[in-house]
Design a protein around this nucleic acid. Structure first.
Lengths: 323, 323
DNA sequence: CTGTTAGCGCATTCAC
DNA sequence: GTGAATGCGCTAACAG
């Protein structure tokens, strides 16, 4: 068992002082000769800087806390991948905590990260509450909210309202008249309200609402209620919701789109495989994640950051709405 | 900005020594009187224990390093969710690093975690190499490999050989005679070799091999090569691979399963939505993740841990192989 | 450009 | 039970 190799070991091997090694590590001035020697010593010893020790000294740790609703969802995975791509290339690391779609847990996580002294926090939020706003006033750790917006917060999110309009327009053009919209809880303002309102602005037919959670299963189980409204089109607030309905309709031998059309939001890859393929608004979550990471890095170096709504999405018209 | 309040500030306010405060923080023996005083002093000052300082000292920090091939894949997401569920309830935190399916990066990550002084490491591995084996001998941080096996390592994985046999048996029973097996690189021993060999043990027809990476796109693009073999059944080493072929076959108007049957491994939810639904071996990745977390916690408290192959999977016979 | 000297904030002996 | 002393591994002055 090899014991941990510290900066002293490297210094000893290289025949220089610890500080010189430290300088090498932190772009200080050192001679080319020593740089080469140290470099070799580092690879020979397998040294890796202990960031906890570094942190203790510098108060700057290259550590980002990330709060995410769930880790096993497509959108979260994509967003995290985007964040991770940027953070990694900037040598940052991240600690991920899941909120399990629970606002209280989200708050706890933010709290915790602040105490632990991460450099910054990215919150993929399930909704902004009053409690969260006052929490943010207490703390000074740079924090950015992803997916939800509020004027008092740093945020970056997709323009859900516009996305909703985009799909609404399409279904309006298809001349559908009677829609069932499977929504999510309104505490998720972005999806539950903005997206939906955008849709209503563009779609002129009747719209009935049914509430679901985010899951495929829930949508599937509650699908029977939908048919009471005799819709000609069903919209899921996410692709998973839409596909849950899909499964039900197929089992009932109801033809899509001939009997009932279906559309969703998300652009999950699975929407392409379903048969018929699902019309959806395809969001670029990975890019959203990248931009969130870029933004937090800006904030971290004291640059100003402007909260924004992104347009990284497009309407994919597929067979599930085309006769 | 608020000035940093340290344990000394608390001690001063409480009129005791730093050690006493430290003891209060770490369930050491202190008088009830002092405990009360310190408690008050802590809330008054708004003191938060500096996690990094504590860690530097104790070397035991409830922090687990996780290496994962990609964060935006179904299997990784599920496994991480399982790991996370257990770790969270035990108050552990995790740092996740992606290897991008690259063995070299996986090694770097292991290296880094060792040096950073995480308590333990979980590696969702892309394959065991000689270099990795010798690396593990150098370090003493409890480490467990998930998804790949080697007698010299702590590992936990699904029994890929058995899974391969299970699907092989089914296709044999269906009396298919000419199979194209879309495999992955053999450096992934679990999927590239074990799973495949299990299949070959049970399936008696001809088998032609084509190599793919893990992606839907790659499989789709290389699908034309498959038809040269005029197969009656196509097997993807993962569901994504199978579904990439799916898309191609559908575009070519080749009927599944009538013209060619298709099957995969994984049990990704999307396999249920495809049309026809995909016959697959459904793995319980979440349970695998949970068990990995349980195992690492055992290792952490010095209990013995036995590497094992798990049978958390089942054959889902669906329309893609049933005439 | 480099080595020496101090701590960062905390946990942990060890005396008392 | 409690306080003084001692580093954890590293960075940051400070001379040289």
């Amino acid at each position: 068992m090899v014991k941990k190799v510290t900066i002293s070991d490297v210094a000893k091997l290289a025949g220089v002082s610890k500080s010189t090694v430290s300088r090498y590590l932190n772009q200080g001035y050192i001679s080319d000769k020593n740089a080469a020697i140290i470099k070799k010593a580092i690879t020979d010893t397998g040294f890796k800087s202990n960031f906890f020790a570094a942190r203790l000294k510098t108060k700057f740790n290259k550590l980002i806390g990330i709060v995410v609703p769930r880790i096993d969802s497509y959108s979260a995975g994509q967003t995290l991948a985007g964040i991770n791509e940027i953070l990694t290339q900037e040598q940052y690391q991240s600690i991920i905590v899941t909120s399990e779609l629970d606002s209280t847990k989200e708050i706890q996580a933010i709290h915790q990260f602040n105490q632990q002294g991460v450099d910054a926090i990215i919150v993929i939020s399930v909704g902004i509450t009053q409690e969260k706003l006052s929490l943010m006033q207490q703390y000074s750790t740079p924090t950015i909210f992803v997916g939800q917006q509020h004027p008092d917060l740093n945020y970056i999110k997709l323009n859900d309202e516009k996305a909703g309009m985009l799909l609404g327009q399409h279904l309006e053009q298809c001349q559908f008249k009677n829609c069932v919209y499977l929504n999510v809880n309104k505490s998720d303002k972005a999806i539950g309200i903005e997206r939906c309102q955008g849709f209503l602005q563009a779609f002129n037919g009747n719209v009935h609402f049914i509430n679901t959670d985010f899951s495929f299963e829930h949508a599937y189980l509650h699908a029977p209620e939908i048919l009471k409204f005799k819709p000609d089109v069903i919209v899921g607030a996410t692709d998973n919701i839409a596909l849950g309905v899909f499964k039900y309709l197929q089992e009932k031998n109801i033809k899509i789109p001939n009997d009932i059309a279906v559309a969703g939001f998300g652009g999950y890859p699975v929407s392409e495989i379903s048969s018929p393929a699902l019309t959806t608004i395809s969001f670029n979550f990975k890019l959203l994640g990248k931009n969130a990471a870029f933004s937090i890095l800006k904030l971290l170096v004291g640059k100003t950051f402007h909260s924004c709504l992104e347009d990284n999405f497009k309407l994919l018209i597929r067979s599930s709405t085309q006769l």
